[in-house]
Design a protein around this nucleic acid. Structure first.
Length: 422
RNA sequence: GUGGCUGUGGCGAAGUUGGUUAACGCACCGGAUUGUGGCUCCGGCACUCGAGGGUUCAAGUCCCUUCAGUCACCCCA
């Protein structure tokens, strides 16, 4: 156990940190373009926040939370998603009193106690945005367009946007009853989980993979048929804006997202070929959430994307180009005095913005050159007794093995000139 | 929480119906080249064959338990 990381967690090693940083760069850049400011909230919150915010009946709250009691006997929970915390921060810090809408993004680890599999981990990373203060359908469309913009910039292909409206609390309860009425006579034929869903949240039966359940619900009325005028109008406008923005989408009346707070717009972005966990992002509108979390009635919409899944998709689609790392100068030394001189020279060259490595192991020259080769150094400076007395060093161009004797006084200029050129 | 597959040196892997000192490749370190890399050759590098228990004269090879990885279900990013 001492040398094993906890289940479902990952070390991001030096050889892969690069792609993470490049991904994060794109996310921050696009955030700026769309006018979002970063918010950093705690990794853990009062358990109650997620219970109320995410919803008591969701899988997240029922079986996936990392909850613990601290020394002050408070129940705390490692955040399983980002929206609840962001809403809490919005309310607590009275951001609603500032200019609206408020557009925020976050980036960081989330935690869910789930069985790990391809594209699913217990600690995973999400980037997400939240917009508070507007119920206008144009922002729904923009948020979806923004997500697609990010994927496109990253080079992802073959994605599909699944879009639905889950209605407001009013039309949803009407729909619920309709759906229950439709399924009533066949209720006993549903699988056991769907029988439970029948009472709690019959819309989730659409998600069931069981063929029998699928058959039973196939001809069921969809929410689209029963949206109230306001919701239907909103949904139509969202589609209108999406079309105008050139974002293709699939209407999916069966898309039901697993978090309780969604109303009206719900969407998911799906990638192919990364296994069963194909959703690389999703979101929707949550107009009642801020109020429910103790703030003023404020509309909101947001989405989150899973960074591991994005990286996985990038890899599967082969759009991940390796970044070559090489240094400018390797300093090889022989003998104690030369070693000291090398240390000083390394500092001097680094001050001139050169990437410099130096041998700390007092290895043989041969071994040092081998190291220089591994670092893909452009030049290796060799300093030994002889060079010290002549106040110069051998500078070897690694590419072709050509060497020159350069005085320490001219070293900086020589290297800078030659490296810039090459 | 449920199920399938897997678990041998840093990595990738051989390992016959259980039978002596557990292949091979890569990586790493050193030498051939007394102060010079990338190629070649030579050499070096394994106290637990995931862990624990059992069967047997004898187990990496059989049985049980457990842990981990992986994929899938549930659900989600």
């Amino acid at each position: 156990m001492l040398t094993t990381r906890p289940r479902g967690t990952n070390d991001i090693l030096p050889n892969e940190i690069d792609k993470w940083q490049r991904l994060e760069e794109v996310l921050r850049h696009v955030s700026r373009l769309y006018g979002y400011s970063e918010i950093r909230t705690p990794i853990f919150e009062h358990t109650e926040l997620f219970q109320r915010g995410v919803g008591e009946t969701t899988d997240i709250v029922e079986k996936e939370m990392y909850t613990f009691v601290d020394r002050g006997e408070r129940s705390l929970t490692l955040r399983p998603e980002g929206t609840a915390s962001t809403v809490r921060a919005y309310v607590e810090n009275k951001l609603f009193a500032g200019p609206q809408p408020t557009k925020l993004f976050y980036l960081g680890p989330m935690f869910r106690y789930d069985r790990p599999q391809a594209g699913r981990y217990r600690q995973f990373h999400q980037y997400g945005v939240e917009v508070f203060g507007s119920r206008d359908p144009s922002i729904d469309a923009e948020v979806i367009a923004m997500a697609m913009d990010i994927y496109t910039r990253l080079g992802l292909k073959n994605l599909s946007v699944e879009l639905n409206s889950v209605g407001c609390t009013k039309c949803r309860s009407v729909y619920r009853k309709e759906l229950q009425k439709y399924l009533e006579k066949n209720k006993h034929k549903l699988c056991s989980t769907c029988q439970a869903r029948y009472d709690r949240n019959p819309m989730r039966i659409f998600d069931c993979k069981n063929e029998n359940c699928q058959a039973l619900i196939e001809e069921a009325p969809t929410i689209a048929d029963l949206l109230c005028n306001e919701c239907r109008d909103h949904f139509n406008k969202v589609q209108e804006y999406l079309k105008a923005l050139g974002i293709p989408f699939h209407l999916n009346p069966r898309l039901v997202r697993g978090l309780d707070y969604y109303v009206q717009t719900a969407f998911e972005i799906v990638a192919q070929g990364i296994g069963a966990q194909s959703s690389i992002g999703g979101g929707g509108r949550y107009d009642g959430l801020v109020e429910q979390c103790g703030g003023p009635a404020t509309p909101g919409i947001g989405y989150a994307m899973g960074l591991e899944r994005i990286l996985l998709t990038l890899q599967k689609q082969g759009v991940m180009q390796e970044e070559t790392k090489n240094i400018d100068v390797y300093i090889a030394t022989l003998g104690e005095k030369a070693h000291l001189k090398g240390a000083v020279l390394a500092q001097q060259l680094r001050n001139k913005e050169l990437l410099v490595e130096y041998d700390y192991l007092k290895r043989s020259l041969k071994a040092q050159l081998k190291a220089a080769d591994r670092y893909q150094a452009s030049f290796t400076i060799i300093i030994g007794e002889e060079e010290l007395t002549n106040n110069q060093a051998v500078v070897r161009k690694m590419e072709d093995g050509s060497q020159a004797c350069i005085s320490f006084a001219d070293m900086e200029k020589y290297l800078i000139d030659n490296i810039r050129k090459g």
